[in-house]
Design a protein around this nucleic acid. Structure first.
Lengths: 184, 184
DNA sequence: TCACACCCTTACGTAGGCGTTAGATTGCAG
DNA sequence: CTGCAATCTAACGCCTACGTAAGGGTGTGA
């Protein structure tokens, strides 16, 4: 029952709670975005209430977008700052272009990394799949201690880390030792 | 059964600093992993120095891998715990399988999201590219306030969010520009 | 005019993953 | 034996993106 401030031009402005409900953000979050300069209320009511114009919702969605894509609020602020800072013309854009290009490379890297992890996971699953088919040897008592290689050359990295023994239950590691001097 | 150390064995064990250098982790990080039960030194020197066997490096790489997958250290610990806790056989594995499958989906999602970012960035760059070709209108003073659409239907989302005005420098609805004096 | 939801500012809390002293040993080369 | 780097434990610091009061005004339908 608020937000109907039909006084002259304030009619179409939103209070922070309205904005919050519209965007699914919390009031606190919006405050924070403002502190960081990502969003500014168009004005305040005489009593000090923030009044936003509706485009603020789009701005919030932009923030959400970038946040979902791994930008920090700081980065967003820097982005905007660099754009608005100096009254440079084409240079501001050049700056932005460079930033975008860096981010693009980073992003491509990230994609590659995640694709690799995808494949790690697939290998892990495929390994565990072979375990399923394994006739559980009662003598060994549990898959957990299974020594079979199930036809795979070795345990995939993901599985190996989990099954590497904790505490002092470590199994004697296979061949060879390494000297400290040999490593570097 | 296994595991009683003779003196010679200690020659092949690593001190924490060696391990750190090998893996690029900090000493502090390794301490932390130990606190969380993700890694255990095989033994200690008589003076209390941690002595790891070289496979610890693999374990550290595993941690790194999962970290990159978005696992928290807690989750890793839980993973290992659930694996070693009950001597359940196939069930432990089933559990793990499910976990991997969930993570796999998540990862594919992540890949998609980043690919979307990639394309957003490309669009942004392409938009800014058109700016480059723009004969800078001297009257407007700066690209920053440029109103041209440069042949694109609209500003890409990334650019739009950045260029939406900060502070009280917002543009009025409709066409028109902002004076530099109005900014700041 | 009152009730009552909203909103204001200020400021401390949280969780994850370490960084960073700090003061006290330990290990090893010389 | 000395010296110096490496380690030890313990504990506080930091950053992010808010959550969550606390204490006190604001807006407005009844």
């Amino acid at each position: 029952m608020n937000s109907v401030l039909d006084r002259d031009d304030q009619a179409h402005l939103l209070r922070i709670g309205d904005l919050a409900r519209m965007t699914g953000k919390s009031v606190r979050a919006i405050h924070l975005y403002e502190e960081l300069g990502l969003l500014t209320p168009r004005t305040r009511s005489s009593g000090g209430f923030r009044l936003f114009d509706p485009s603020a919702a789009e701005q919030l969605r932009w923030i959400e977008l970038l946040h979902g894509l791994g930008f920090s609020l700081q980065e967003m602020r820097d982005l905007r700052r660099s754009w608005w800072s100096n009254e440079l013309g084409p240079e501001a854009m050049e700056h932005l272009r460079e930033l975008f290009e860096r981010k693009l490379e980073e992003t491509r890297d990230t994609v590659r990394r995640y694709q690799q992890l995808e494949s790690e996971l697939e290998q892990g699953l495929s390994y565990l799949q072979t375990c399923r088919a394994c006739a559980t040897p009662a003598e060994v008592a549990a898959c957990v201690h299974c020594d079979q290689d199930h036809g795979m050359t070795s345990r995939p990295a993901l599985v190996a880390g989990i099954t590497s023994a904790p505490e002092r239950a470590r199994r004697r590691s296979g061949p060879g030792f390494v000297r400290i001097e040999d490593i570097e």
